[in-house]
Design a protein around this nucleic acid. Structure first.
Lengths: 248, 248
DNA sequence: ATGTTTTTGAATGTTTATGATTGTTTTTTA
DNA sequence: TAAAAAACAATCATAAACATTCAAAAACAT
């Protein structure tokens, strides 16, 4: 019997029962214990099952997810509030740049029906805009795995072809001394270029980003207007350096 | 026994069982192990099966149920056959351009696991590539409503930044006199540029496109290799002008 | 008919899969 | 808690499957 056949048999049996004994599999496949042990080790490494003493169980696949989802949901109201506020700065006839990110993506629904041209480096945002029938330009570049954003040198080059009235960007760190910072240098390059090319730039960030510093510097605080949602006092110190809009 | 006969037998047996042992095939075809091994290697390279130790299995292609539009399209099998054949020209280490279109998009599954860099102007293709963890560059440009492709002058400019080994393009018309043609001038501009920049260019078209002429000329027939699926005699006249690969 | 290319099967050394054996760890039983 | 039983990981030799090479045979073109 072929290895792959055994693997299929094991997974099939497991999906029926959700727990299976090693001895059972030895009988089922007419193989030695050693072989079945190896199979279970391999299948576990591939994430198909979880070994237990005496056999294997179906992996509980959906346990880790909620942590990430919950975390995102906590700030989801703030995000929409910030996005809504930011969108109010956009007037008919304008061209705007929407940087990749969940907060900027949340702006898209507020563009519905407006007469705007959008430039973006985000595939998800481009898809959303496509559904709304908004004139859209996508800048070129390398597709970054984690964020589905187009980044790097080519993205900067491509972006130079566009001039926009307003640019809206997400950010990872907002700090009095370090300014706006983000972890990925290639993303930072794109953000920096966007701020340079726009007539006015807006950074969208909830107050969980305040005081944080990431590796790559995008711009000093005064280079952009900060759109946030905060009742903490930390806003006031930023307010002395650059213009701040509170969505609250 | 002819090679093609053996291949058909192997695929037939495989479609019946979905896994088959090498020894089984040796018996079935009365050929040597060496020959069967060669067959399996070839068929794997063409994307028909996956070799495993001791035999071969059907490709674990996640069976996407065809949408209504796809179902209505009676050329869907031809499309996959053409895409499969076209993908065999791609070798590890190459960079390729995938033009927007359903046929070129059908090539994406056959890139799984290959060591390639892909440049594309298609948002759907970029999304598919994203799922396969393939290094991807997207060219910039205006997002065209009907096809979700990036086109126009900016797309051409952005594409100039890349050199690819192979370019794969769909087309609307293949005509002896008019050459390759497509309705949208902005798309034609992008296609034309792709053919210029690629070391070799392949046009993917089923024989329903033969003899058709659209508004915008992309290139003369001899500028690219035609990959098609046809048993009609109309192929032979094209064959006298440019290289033709029949996926049949 | 002749030379060339393609296909084939055998021979080779190499890699991979397997089952038995060992001693260790975990679980069960007394 | 201690002893026995079961399950385990690690190692080894063997056998099966493998890629590669080569020479003969077949198909092909000239």
């Amino acid at each position: 019997m072929l290895t792959k056949q055994r693997h299929q048999l094991i997974l099939q049996r497991l999906s029926e029962q959700k727990i299976v004994k090693l001895k059972e599999l030895v009988e089922l496949t007419a193989s030695s214990e050693s072989t079945i042990r190896r199979d279970l080790t391999d299948l576990e490494a591939e994430g198909y099952l979880e070994r237990v003493h005496g056999g294997a169980t179906l992996v509980a696949r959906y346990e880790e997810e909620p942590t990430f989802e919950e975390k995102r949901d906590q700030h989801v109201d703030e995000k929409v509030a910030i996005a809504r506020k930011a969108a109010t700065f956009i007037e008919d006839g304008m061209s705007v740049y929407l940087d990749a990110g969940t907060t900027t993506q949340a702006m898209v629904p507020f563009l519905d029906g407006k007469d705007v041209i959008v430039v973006t480096n985000s595939l998800p945002i481009a898809n959303d805009l496509f559904d709304l029938d908004i004139k859209t330009f996508v800048i070129g570049g390398e597709l970054k795995r984690s964020t589905q954003a187009l980044v790097g040198y080519n993205a900067r080059e491509s972006m130079m072809n566009y001039r926009v009235d307003l640019a809206f960007l997400g950010i990872n760190g907002v700090d009095l001394e370090a300014g706006y910072t983000t972890p990925d240098p290639e993303e930072a390059l794109v953000k920096k270029t966007a701020i340079e090319l726009a007539r006015e730039a807006y950074i969208l960030a909830d107050d969980s980003k305040f005081g944080k510093r990431s590796f790559s510097r995008v711009a000093p605080l005064e280079a952009a207007t900060l759109v946030t949602w905060s009742d903490s006092s930390s806003v006031s110190s930023i307010q002395s350096i650059t213009k701040v809009v509170n969505a609250q």
